[in-house]
Amino acid sequence: MKTILRILLTAIAVVVLASFLPGVEIQGYTSAILVAVVLGLLRITVKPLLIFFTLPATIVTLGLFLLVINAVIILLADYFVSGFTVSGFWIALLFSVLLSIFQSVLYSFLNEGKQK
C-alpha cells in the first residue's frame, strides 16, 4: 500500500513540475503514473550501476556528480515513456533536483502519520 501511495505522490509531483517547468511536458495522468513507475524501476536497477561505474567522478566532485546521474535517469525515463518529454540535459537536471525536493516534502507526510 505504501508503494502505491509513493507512486501516486511521485506522479502528482511530476504533473505539478511539468506544469510550470518550460522544457518538461506530460500528456496525461496515466503518463505521469507510468513515469513514476519507470523512475522507480530505473532508480532500483540502473542508478546503482551508474553510481558504481562513476564512483571516481563522484568522489572527486564530492558527490555532486550524483546530480548528473539523477538527470540521466530522468532522460532515460523520457526515452522509455512516450507521453513524457524533457527538452535537454539542463532541464532534466533542474527537474530532478526539484522532483527530489518535492518528493522529500511529500514523503515526509507519510512518515509523519506513521509516528503518531
Rank of each mutant, 00 (worst) to 15 (best):
I4A: 15
L5Y: 13
R6V: 03
R6S: 12
L8K: 00
L9S: 04
A13K: 01
A18C: 02
L21N: 03
G23Q: 05
V24C: 01
G28Y: 09
G28R: 08
Y29V: 12
T30R: 14
T30P: 02
S31A: 14
A32T: 04
A32N: 02
I33D: 09
I33K: 09
L34F: 00
A36L: 04
V38G: 00
L42Y: 06
R43P: 06
T45D: 11
V46K: 05
K47T: 06
K47S: 01
L49Y: 12
I51T: 10
T54D: 04
T54K: 06
P56S: 07
A57M: 14
T58N: 03
T58L: 11
L62N: 09
G63C: 06
L64N: 07
A71I: 02
L76M: 12
L76Q: 08
A77H: 08
D78T: 06
Y79T: 13
F80I: 12
S82Y: 10
F84Q: 03
F84W: 02
T85F: 03
S87E: 11
F89V: 11
W90M: 07
I91E: 13
L93S: 07
L94C: 10
F95Q: 08
V97M: 06
I101R: 02
F102P: 08
Q103I: 13
Q103V: 11
V105Q: 10
L106G: 09
Y107L: 00
F109N: 12
L110I: 14
E112C: 13
